[in-house]
Structure formats: structure tokens, C-alpha cells
Simulated scan of single mutants.
Amino acid sequence: MKRIIATLALAAAALTASACSTDTTSAPESTTTTQAAANYTYSPPSRPATQPPVAPESTSTSPAAARNKPAGYISEATWTDGEWPFTVAEGTLMCAAPSRVTFTANRTMYAVNGAAKKAGGFDDIAAIWKSSPNGLKADLTPVIDAGLALC
């Protein structure tokens, strides 16, 4: 029994030695594969040419017209709904649920309608609310309507 085990161990060692051999003369197929691999040049898959997206041309040459503005941005220069009601030149209208309309100008958020005033936490619009030539305050109804349209 010991003799059989010793013979098997010798056979296993001989097989392991021949499997680890780096002699390529006994394996002509691997030489052919190696030569073919040496002649291979990688080329990435072709892709269709694409054009980068192009922004639409602006009709204005003003740098201010080119900057991004939020959806509720309004300004005295672009206001077309009657008299501009504020003493500041521009700002951003916002609407918070359920119907709180606010106007932000110079980093201050003002309550425009009753719902925003009732909610609290906003400055009083009276600080920037312009008076009309007749002595009354300018009409805020168009501003409130524009703000509610954002809800």
C-alpha cells in the first residue's frame, strides 16, 4: 500500500512539473496564439458623430438679460400690468401652499397678501410699497394674481 501511494505521489509531481513548464516548443498551438496576439491592434468601437448642443441665440446684448432668472422674477423694466407697485426695481414672487404670496427683494422676504401676513415670519410689504401720484398706495392686485399663478 505504501508503495502505491509513493508511486502516485511521484506521478503527481511529474504532472505538476510538466504543467508549470514554460517550454513553448512542446506546444506549437500556444506559439501561434501568442504570435496572433502580438499582431493584434485594438481599435475602439466606432460611434456616430454627434454635434454638441447649441444654445439659442439671445436677441439682447445686455449682460443682465443673459443671466438666469427664477420663474417668479419680476422687474419694473418688464412689468406690463399697470403701475409698478414697489420702491425696489426688481424681485422674485413666490407662492407657498395654500396661497401665501411673498416678494423677495434685496435678500428680504415680504408678505404680499393676507395669507402670507397671517402665516407670519415675513417682513411687511409696506416698507417697499410705493405710493401712487394720487397719494394712495399702488394696486397690488396684479402682483398677487401673478404670485398665485405660481402655486
Results as ranks from 00 to 15, higher is better:
75 S>R: 14
126 A>R: 12
30 S>G: 03
29 E>D: 12
126 A>T: 12
80 T>H: 05
91 G>P: 01
151 C>R: 04
102 T>A: 07
132 S>Q: 06
19 A>W: 13
54 V>K: 06
7 T>Y: 01
25 T>N: 07
26 S>K: 11
82 G>C: 10
132 S>F: 04
69 K>G: 04
94 M>I: 10
65 A>Y: 08
96 A>Y: 03
110 Y>S: 03
49 A>D: 10
150 L>W: 03
56 P>C: 03
105 A>G: 03
21 S>Q: 07
1 M>T: 09
123 D>W: 05
135 G>E: 07
139 D>G: 01
18 S>G: 13
20 C>M: 10
20 C>K: 10
17 A>E: 08
125 I>L: 02
144 I>G: 12
136 L>H: 08
148 L>F: 00
82 G>I: 03
75 S>I: 09
122 F>R: 15
140 L>E: 01
5 I>C: 05
73 Y>S: 15
142 P>D: 01
32 T>K: 13
47 R>Q: 14
56 P>R: 05
128 I>C: 00
68 N>S: 13
71 A>L: 15
124 D>Q: 04
46 S>H: 06
99 S>F: 04
140 L>Q: 01
55 A>T: 08
34 T>H: 15
18 S>C: 07
37 A>N: 08
79 W>C: 09
130 K>C: 09
119 A>D: 02
69 K>E: 12
55 A>Q: 13
26 S>P: 00
38 A>T: 07
1 M>W: 04
36 A>F: 00
122 F>I: 07
140 L>D: 00
144 I>W: 13
69 K>D: 12
56 P>D: 06
100 R>T: 01
147 G>E: 01
12 A>P: 00
12 A>M: 15
129 W>Q: 14
17 A>V: 03
107 R>V: 14
41 T>S: 08
67 R>L: 06
95 C>W: 00
70 P>S: 14
15 L>H: 07
52 P>T: 11
72 G>K: 09
80 T>L: 07
30 S>P: 02
58 S>F: 06
5 I>N: 08
20 C>Q: 11
150 L>A: 04
92 T>F: 02
132 S>E: 13
42 Y>D: 08
18 S>T: 14
44 P>T: 00
139 D>P: 01
119 A>V: 03
40 Y>E: 04
118 K>N: 14
46 S>M: 09
15 L>E: 13
56 P>W: 05
119 A>H: 11
148 L>W: 00
12 A>C: 04
32 T>C: 07
70 P>D: 11
30 S>Q: 12
56 P>L: 05
8 L>V: 08
93 L>S: 00
98 P>T: 05
137 K>V: 01
54 V>P: 00
52 P>I: 06
139 D>K: 07
149 A>T: 02
2 K>T: 14
117 K>C: 06
126 A>H: 09
46 S>P: 12
130 K>E: 05
81 D>R: 12
31 T>G: 14
13 A>C: 09
12 A>E: 03
59 T>G: 14
111 A>P: 07
35 Q>N: 14
90 E>S: 15
87 T>R: 11
4 I>M: 11
75 S>C: 09
7 T>D: 08
70 P>K: 10
41 T>R: 01
36 A>K: 06
35 Q>Y: 02
36 A>S: 12
8 L>Y: 09
65 A>W: 03
24 T>R: 09
115 A>H: 04
7 T>C: 12
29 E>H: 15
66 A>M: 11
87 T>L: 08
19 A>V: 13
7 T>W: 08
122 F>A: 04
